[in-house]
Every structure is written in structure tokens, then in C-alpha cells.
């Protein structure tokens, strides 16, 4: 508004238009306030706040007394954190491979123009509608050593059969994996199926004319063509893995001992259970770092590549 009397060059029209330019589009700006608040204050502000406070000595309450990287040093010398990271790596790799392989195989089988496709699809996908808590509790019951699957197989006559992952620290992560795959593969199957449906029928005809077998066509031709679908799936699975928390809480509560702890649970315990905020902030900042490491190559491939091309 004060620009009105800057100089003779500014005509009267300009002076009227300038403030109104902001006002004219005021409605969308007001309407977007919740979004602007969420994006800038909650997401961006919250993230920066946590990273900032991870360099402080915060205990019961957050306070700004700097300790440099002390929290991170403590974090990485904590046995529980190391176990959490190892567990997440093991679970993550198996889950990534398992979900992609099962998801794609199921999608490919369903894409073979079979009868009852809709029935199979809804059976494979329904677990995805259920929460991780429900998933964890059901599988905890099925994997119950005295009354569950192990018992049934023993009753069938295989008396030495042992499958008790939830009480065996060595394989507890696989117990979680069985449940995690059950819950999550349906989604990836759906995405893969959509990808397969988008592939031109002519490709299949060409492959048949050339006498290439079905399996070989999938591996050599179809999968390379579905690269974007695989990348999307990969990002989705990876983002889900880092968040792994509810399933562990419901199925094993981190046990036996600390053998199925995961980073997200470490954060929660430090922040809300142990009154050890600094550790919680440092651990969650490490989780953020993991996501960044996963996402940057992907973002580069997806968006960086397009710009150059």
C-alpha cells in the first residue's frame, strides 16, 4: 500500500490493482489454510523440531541444552537399537522379496484368464482391509505352540514337528513375516495385476509367434516392461516396512526378550515409556534418514531422469 507514492511512474491503476491481486484470490488461500498449516507446521515444522531436539539432552521434557551427537552415540551403542536395526533389515529384505515375488506370481496367475478370478482376488486382498493389530493377534493364536498349528501337525502324526517362531529368538522375525506377508501381499498383487492388464495383448501374440514359453515371456519381456509398477511397489513396501510397529506390538510385544524389537518400537518406548525423549528423537531421526536413503535414488530415477530426457 505504501508503494502508492513511490514515484510518478506508478499509475493510479497499478496502485489499485496491487493490493486487490492478493485479495482477489483470497478464498482459495483461506480454504487452503488447513493444508498450509499441516504441511508447514505439522509435517515440516515437526520434522525439523524433532531433528533439532535430537541434539539435546532432553529427558522427561524437551529442553534446549546441546549435547552434540551424544544421543546418537548412545543410540548406536545400545544393544536394543542394534537388534532393532538388524531385525528391520532382515524383515525388510525378506518382506521386500517375498511381497514382490508372491504379489507378482499371484497377479500373473490371475491374469491367465481363469475362472473365478474375482473370488480369488477378494480372498487375497481381504487381509489388507484388516489392521496390523488384528493380523498380529490372529497369527499369534495360529502360531500358538500348545494349541495352534504345531499341535495340529503333531496330532496328524508328525510328532517331532516343531514350528514355534514366536518363542524362538532365532526365527521370531519369520513369525512376523508370515503375518506381514499375509496382510500386505494382496495390495501388491492388485497393483501388479493392474500393470499386467495394461500390457498390450500383441506382446503375447508376438511371443507366441516366436515360440517363447509363457514363463520365459514373463521373465524376459513382461517384467522389464513393468518396471514403473515394480518401482511403485518397491517404494510402497519399503515405506511400510520402516513403519513396522503395530504388528510387533500385537504379535510378540518385542519378545522373546528383545529379539523382535524394531526401530519404531524403540522410538515409542524411549519417548512415551522411558521418558527418554532425546533417545526417541535421535532414533526417529535415524528412521527419517533411512526413508531418505530409500527415497532419494527413487526420486532421482523418477523425476531427475524425466527432466534430462
Amino acid at each position: 500500500m505504501t508503494t502508492t507514492d513511490i514515484g510518478p511512474n506508478t499509475g493510479p491503476r497499478e496502485t489499485v490493482r496491487r493490493p486487490s491481486r492478493f485479495l482477489r484470490n483470497l478464498s482459495p488461500k483461506i480454504a487452503m489454510l488447513p493444508l498450509i498449516f499441516t504441511a508447514c507446521v505439522v509435517f515440516l515444522g515437526g520434522t525439523l523440531w524433532t531433528v533439532l531436539y535430537s541434539f539435546t539432552k532432553s529427558g522427561l521434557l524437551p529442553r534446549l541444552s546441546w549435547v552434540g551427537l551424544d544421543q546418537y552415540e548412545r543410540l548406536w551403542s545400545s544393544r536394543k537399537w542394534i537388534v532393532s536395526i538388524e531385525n528391520l533389515a532382515l524383515y525388510g529384505i525378506c518382506s521386500l522379496i517375498g511381497t514382490l515375488v508372491i504379489g507378482f506370481t499371484l497377479a500373473a496367475l490371475l491374469d491367465r484368464k481363469i475362472r473365478g478370478e474375482a473370488v480369488f482376488r477378494s480372498i487375497f486382498l481381504y487381509p489388507f482391509a484388516l489392521s496390523f493389530i488384528v493380523t498380529g493377534l490372529v497369527w499369534q493364536w495360529i502360531l500358538n505352540p500348545e494349541l495352534g498349528l504345531q499341535n495340529v501337525v503333531r496330532e496328524w502324526g508328525w510328532t517331532s514337528f516343531t514350528f514355534d517362531p514366536l518363542n524362538n529368538p532365532e526365527i521370531v522375525m519369520f513369525g512376523l513375516l508370515i503375518a506381514g506377508l499375509w496382510q500386505g501381499t494382496g495390495l501388491i498383487m492388485c497393483i501388479m495385476l493392474a500393470g499386467l492388464r495394461g500390457i498390450d495383448e500383441d506382446i503375447w501374440k508376438a511371443a507366441r509367434v516366436d515360440g517363447i514359453g509363457t514363463v520365459k515371456t514373463y521373465i524376459r519381456v513382461i517384467i522389464p516392461m513393468m518396471r514403473p509398477v515394480f518401482v511403485t511397489s518397491l517404494v510402497l513396501i519399503a515405506a511400510g516396512i520402516v513403519k513396522l510397529y503395530d504388528l510387533v506390538v500385537a504379535q510378540t510385544s518385542g519378545g522373546p526378550g528383545i529379539s523382535s524389537e524394531v526401530p519404531a518400537k524403540y522410538v515409542m518406548t524411549a519417548m512415551f515409556g522411558g521418558q527418554n525423549l532425546g533417545q526417541g528423537f535421535a532414533a526417529s531421526s535415524m528412521m527419517l534418514l533411512m526413508v531418505v536413503i530409500i527415497l532419494i535414488p527413487w526420486a532421482y530415477l523418477e523425476f531427475g531422469g524425466k527432466k534430462h530426457g
Binding site: 493444508l35 498450509i36 499441516t38 508447514c40 509435517f43 515440516l44 520434522t47 523440531w49 528423537f281 526417529s284
Partner: peptide
Amino acid sequence: FFTILMIGAFIPYQVMLY
């Protein structure tokens, strides 16, 4: 703002909890 919001969707919830 929209880009910030979408990036925020990938940040682990634990980072923003406190």
C-alpha cells in the same frame, strides 16, 4: 505447499509424534 504435504506422507510418523 502441496509438494511439502506429499513429501510429509513419506516421513515416518514417529518423527512427528512428539
